[in-house]
């Protein structure tokens, strides 16, 4: 199964014990298909982020195998993009320099970098803020900057760790909609961590339910909603309520297990 070209990333019975002795996840298995949008949902502190870090190669599995394109991940995986919880733009670089960063590290010539950056800054509606430092941007703008600095080098898999967490409801929905549009335009694969069920259902092809700590992949739900989707009207979409309640029924038990 692991050699199937359709599967871009796979976790096989993966466990992770941190140096501190904390068992973050245990016996996780999951296969991610190319061009798929998969959300990981579960109570906070259940180790969802750990899965992303394992695939990015900045943590290594204690047991089990993490495969990327059929090969075990060893060392930092530069074919993926990571959008962390806080926007983590480098505070000493301007927005433009931040957006160009990955291309600069890849020795892309200056002019081409600038062209690419201008294109993405325009897509993210950040034109006019190229020379601003992160502290001069609002939370939503930083978030958009953080996403496009990842998209600019066209990573095959986008790992997003509660990227819209601290934002207000309206900004969130706008960014979710933008993300969906960029994702369908770029044909990338997204692995998306969230604790917001509505967000998970609205965005995903599949939703993976995590148990409470130590986390494990409990159940996978297919989301039967048609695309393209409109996150602002997702409530009214055929089938939304049923699948939402079906997942919530299971998620509730896990959340209750924490509280």
């Amino acid at each position: 199964m692991t050699g199937t070209p359709d599967i871009i990333a796979a976790f096989e019975g993966v466990s992770k014990v941190y140096d501190t002795g904390v068992l973050a996840i245990t016996d996780c298995s999951l296969q991610v298909r190319r061009h798929e949008f998969v959300s990981l949902i579960g109570p906070s502190g259940c180790g969802k982020t750990t899965l992303l870090k394992l695939l990015a190669g900045i943590e290594s599995a204690t047991r089990g195998r993490v495969l990327y394109k059929g090969q075990p991940v060893s060392g930092v995986n530069t074919e993926v993009g990571f959008v962390p919880q806080d926007s983590s733009l480098f505070p000493w670089l301007t927005l433009q320099e931040n957006v160009e960063y990955a291309l600069r590290m890849r020795q892309v010539p200056k002019r081409e970098r600038a062209e690419q950056a201008a294109k993405w800054i325009k897509i993210a509606r950040l034109t006019g803020f190229e020379q601003s430092y992160p502290y001069q941007l609002s939370g939503g703008m930083q978030k958009r900057g953080s996403i496009i600095r990842t998209l600019i080098y066209n990573p095959e898999v986008l790992l997003m760790d509660e990227p819209f967490g601290p934002l207000d409801a309206q900004t969130r929905m706008f960014l979710q909609q933008e993300l969906l549009e960029m994702w369908s335009a770029e044909k990338s694969t997204v692995l998306f961590v969230t604790h917001d069920l509505q967000e998970a259902v609205a965005l995903s092809d599949r939703v993976v339910l995590f148990s409470h700590s130590p986390g494990t992949t409990m159940r996978v739900f297919d989301i039967p909603l048609s695309r393209p989707r409109d996150v602002f009207e997702i409530h009214g979409q055929e089938g939304f309520k049923q699948i939402y309640h079906e997942i919530w029924h299971d998620l509730r038990e896990q959340v209750a297990g924490v509280v």
């Binding site: 930092v76 530069t78 993009g81 080098y153």
Partner: peptide, 18 residues
């Protein structure tokens, strides 16, 4: 130093020296 910055830089393709 924020460890996240180090990790992000590496994922974005920076060598150790970079």
């Amino acid at each position: 130093i924020n460890v996240d910055y180090l990790h992000l830089a590496r994922i974005m393709g920076a060598s150790r020296r970079q």
